[in-house]
């Protein structure tokens, strides 16, 4: 589960061999272009989509991998986009929905490319070079580290529930049990946060996160 997003992060394609800063600038450029292009400029958006597809191919990231991740990303995006016509009126609302879906999809696929051509520790080192605030970087590092720990915990809870389900639950029961599991996961996450905080303090942490690059070549 831990490689759900960045399975190809340590491969050796052309893109992987680019300097970290180049990869970051390419990703930022594509995201900037996707978010600035008006929805009415179809050819321009198509060109950006082609560019994203091209860098994915160059990095040898399988299309099926991207499609499966999009499958998980789209439901919340569509939910958010479809709520706009209800609040903004039909004509303006649909246009905004299309904009959100289009920009969201292009940005997500670009971010997915970035984490698959650059191991996360390299990404953090590059962001450190760009002098991003250390609190922000610490949050990113902890989120990346514990997202999958919590995901695995949710998975174990789901398995534990399934082995004691002797009939197919109704849709209402599924929603109910899902909500209960999320609640329990939140409590467990808070407990774990407490323990992680203890572990950080046990090794002398006093509120300031310090970094040291492992190798000089990371700093290039």
């Amino acid at each position: 589960m831990s490689d759900y997003l960045d399975r190809f992060g340590r491969d050796q394609s052309t893109c992987h061999r680019w300097p970290p800063l180049v990869k970051l600038y390419v990703a930022m450029g594509l995201i900037l272009a996707a978010t600035c292009a008006p929805i009415t400029h179809g050819p321009l958006l198509g060109l950006i989509a082609c560019a994203i597809f091209f860098v994915h191919s160059l990095a040898r990231i399988p299309l099926a991998f991207v499609a499966r991740r999009l499958f998980f990303f789209w439901p919340p995006l569509f939910l958010m986009a479809l709520s706009l016509p209800l609040s903004q009126g039909c004509r303006a609302g649909w246009l905004m929905s299309a904009t959100i879906i289009c920009r969201g999809t292009l940005s997500f696929t670009t971010a997915l490319w970035l984490v698959n051509v650059m191991p996360f520790d390299q990404l953090l080192a590059t962001l450190r070079r760009l002098r991003l605030p250390s609190v922000f970087l610490a949050i990113l590092a902890l989120m990346y580290r514990f997202l999958f720990v919590l995901w695995d915990e949710l998975d174990r809870m789901r398995t534990a529930r399934q082995v004691r389900l002797f009939r197919k639950p109704s849709l209402w029961e599924q929603w109910q049990q899902g909500a209960q599991m999320l609640g329990r996961l939140l409590i467990r996450a808070l407990d774990r946060a407490d323990r992680v905080h203890g572990a950080m303090m046990a090794r002398g942490w006093q509120g300031e996160t310090r970094w040291l690059e492992q190798r000089q070549k990371d700093q290039r």
Binding site: G198, W211, L212
Partner: peptide, 25 residues
């Protein structure tokens, strides 16, 4: 202090960063 669950204690992305956490502090 060694915690019971290593996932509580390993909070950095790489082994190097995690081992260096204490000395840096």
């Amino acid at each position: 202090f060694l915690f019971q669950d290593p996932d509580d204690q390993l909070f950095c992305p790489t082994v190097f960063e995690d081992v260096a956490f204490g000395p840096l502090n």
